[in-house]
């Protein structure tokens, strides 16, 4: 049985490797210093989708992403690794969304996919917010079951069998299709780009990207429709304006402060200073910190 697989992915600033230049002198974040990357858990999700496609020939993988127009990069990345196409949801009124408004917008997008879906797979959480909320919220909006913290997904006889990673162990669950799965970072790492697919899709663009290109590229995309990446806005997903963006977000950010830890006056020792180390140990024993 071939599967219609939807992969949810987000382009995020790389918050894991925040270097010294990532914070400006005034203490705010220098977003420009943080590269935009494919959210790590979403790559694990893509790999699970690719494994399902390998196991079920004829399956298709559609990547759905919401963000800035440059998120088209996410769809290309999926195409390079074995995906079949994607939708970039981008529109000004969608901005400022919290997880609830985001999940509504994405659920509307999934509802409008022309070919439908059998299984929706996303990463557990995105590293810019670490909330892990959008996956289960999409499941609720689409009235589908959800399986979170998935490490391995297989499908047979219209049922998914999923291994879940729990705090102190694991569980294996079975769930009929369709459903929403969120995949943890401990699942298989995503396969690298395939050189042949990179050649095939390196000119894939959204209509707005195509506008700025020359006639030769326009002619190329016209002759090869698989190179056109869908770009949708609020109208395409028939979204209720009350439920998107800032307006559709019940949570509001009251204040944001930079994290500054109170520096202490430290006593400094050299690793080779035997007497100093012994004094330190004695001091800790005397103070009943150890011993």
């Amino acid at each position: 049985m071939s599967l219609r697989i939807v992969v949810l992915a987000k382009q995020v600033p790389d918050t894991r490797n925040v270097g010294k230049d990532a914070m400006k002198a005034d203490g705010t974040i220098n977003r420009a210093a943080l590269p935009a990357i494919f959210n790590p858990d979403d790559l694990n999700a893509l790999e699970q989708a690719l494994q399902l496609k390998d196991a079920h020939p004829g399956s298709t993988i559609t990547l759905v992403t919401m963000g800035l127009p440059r998120s088209a990069e996410m769809v290309r990345e999926a195409l390079y690794r074995g995906g079949d196409g994607g939708v970039v949801l981008t529109d000004r009124p969608l901005g400022g969304a919290d997880t609830l408004a985001t999940s509504y917008s994405l659920a509307q997008t999934i509802r409008h996919l022309p070919d439908g879906y059998d299984i929706i797979i996303g990463g557990r959480q995105a590293i810019d917010g670490d909330t892990a909320q959008v996956g289960p919220q999409i499941a609720e909006k689409l009235n589908l079951p959800q399986v979170t913290y998935a490490e391995r997904v297989t499908v047979s006889d219209g049922k998914a069998t999923i291994k879940r990673r729990l705090e102190n162990g694991f569980e294996v669950v079975e769930c009929p299709l369709p459903l929403v799965v969120t995949v943890t970072g401990s699942a298989d790492a995503c396969r690298p780009r395939n050189a042949r697919l990179v050649q095939k899709y390196k000119y894939a663009v959204t209509p707005s990207e195509l506008e700025g290109l020359d006639d030769r590229r326009k002619a190329l995309v016209q002759s090869r429709p698989e190179l056109l990446i869908s770009q949708w806005g609020v109208a395409d997903i028939e979204a209720d304006p009350e439920q998107i963006g800032l307006k559709g977000s019940p949570t509001k950010v009251k204040t944001v402060v930079n994290v500054v830890f109170q520096a202490k006056e430290s006593k400094r020792l050299d690793g080779g200073d035997d007497a100093g180390l012994e004094d330190l140990v004695k001091e800790l024993i005397t103070d009943h910190i150890i011993g």
Binding site: F261, Q262, A263, K264, S266, K267, R268, L269, D270, G271, G272, D274, L277, E278, L280, V281, K282, I285, I290, G291
Partner: peptide, 27 residues
């Protein structure tokens, strides 16, 4: 190091065995 009460600059391989030695000696 800015939030530490004690900063020991050195390799773990040299520092940790010494801490163990001095602890055993003094406790």
């Amino acid at each position: 190091n800015t939030i530490a009460d004690y900063v020991i600059t050195g390799n773990l391989e040299e520092v940790i065995p010494r801490l163990i030695k001095y602890y055993k000696k003094n406790s």
